[in-house]
């Protein structure tokens, strides 16, 4: 039996908690393995997805230096969905700074000329406008990378990994969801290629998909957030191809699970797939890097 006072108290508490929720500012923190949020307000969607997997506080501590690794490979317009949406990046940067991060480094080794990305990419503007955020575009220069052995690697035994990773406390992988002609989809695991020096070596290795899994054994993001606001569903990785507006953000700690879930969002190159259809995710799961079947995990799925 609820007492009147109790009822009023509970209601007041509920309003207090949910009030900010409806204004899109604060989200109840869940502890799901995957946060899958859909909504037209990008900022609210990103915040909801991160909140669902423990909130940013579970990853970023006061005074941390955070590296965010978006996909900045091309200076193409946002609507082509070949690179991470600047609004998503902005939300993630703000989340980290609000959690007390002292500095956010936006790091990528782009395919296109770094000078042009720095000048023309829509992301450059956003990073410039954010206080305590710095964009670092790596080029194929040896002293920016440290040659690292891949102990468990079979297709790739050693690779140059960005030195900057040693300087940061947290690594957040922020790929855009897009199709890829060599590995079906380019998500978090494939996104790791933006942190190594010699990208062509992976394509030239005995098995491209295996080499991606090998790389994932030495580079593991603390948090993976897949930007599927717009997904380039065909003709990736550069397009222009079919862009699907999914308005979805997938976040999670397990890089394989996040990718495996994001795969199911839309058909890639007109083939509907699951995690168990994607070779590089299979290899990664076989190496024990994560869960290939998201249905075994707790998923917090909402529309914001």
């Amino acid at each position: 039996m609820i007492s009147r006072r109790g009822f009023i108290k509970t209601s007041a508490a509920a309003v207090m908690v949910s009030g900010p929720y409806f204004t899109g500012k604060v989200f109840a923190e869940g502890n799901a393995d995957l946060g899958v949020m859909t909504g037209s307000d990008i900022d609210a969607t990103v915040r909801a997805a991160v909140a669902a997997v423990g909130g940013i506080g579970a990853y970023v501590k006061q005074g941390d230096r955070v590296a965010i690794k978006p996909n900045l490979s091309f200076a193409s317009p946002v609507k082509r969905a070949a690179t991470t949406n600047p609004d998503v990046l902005k939300s993630v940067m703000n989340l980290c700074l609000e959690a007390g991060a002292k500095q956010v480094l936006v790091v990528d080794h782009p395919l296109q000329d770094a000078a042009i990305i720095g000048e023309k990419s829509p992301v450059a503007e956003v990073v410039k406008d954010t206080k305590n955020a710095t964009m670092i575009l790596l080029s194929m220069t040896e002293n920016l990378f440290k040659e690292t052995k891949i102990e468990r690697g079979t297709a790739m035994k050693s690779t140059g990994v960005a030195k900057i990773l040693n300087e940061v406390d947290v690594l957040i992988n922020l790929p855009v969801a897009k199709s890829h002609s060599a590995c079906v989809v380019s998500l978090g695991i494939k996104g790791n290629l933006g942190l190594v020096m010699d990208r062509p070596a992976y394509h030239n290795s005995s098995d491209f998909n295996q080499s991606l899994a090998d790389l994932a054994t030495i580079i593991r993001a603390d948090l993976t957030i897949v930007d599927a606001v717009r997904a380039l569903s065909t003709r990736g990785p550069q397009g222009p191809g079919k862009v699907v507006e999914l308005n979805t953000i997938v976040a999670g700690k397990d890089p394989v699970a996040v990718d495996a879930y994001a795969v199911t969002l839309t058909p890639w190159n007109n083939l509907q797939a699951k995690g168990r259809n994607i070779q590089h995710l299979i290899y990664a799961a076989e190496m024990g890097l994560g869960e290939l079947d998201p249905t075994k995990l707790t998923i917090s799925k909402k529309t914001v």
Binding site: F74, H203, N209, Q238
Partner: peptide, 12 residues
């Protein structure tokens, strides 16, 4: 499985 030429081609 090398597709770098496709990957880098800005004109598709």
């Amino acid at each position: 499985i090398c597709l770098i030429c496709d990957e880098v081609c800005p004109y598709d």
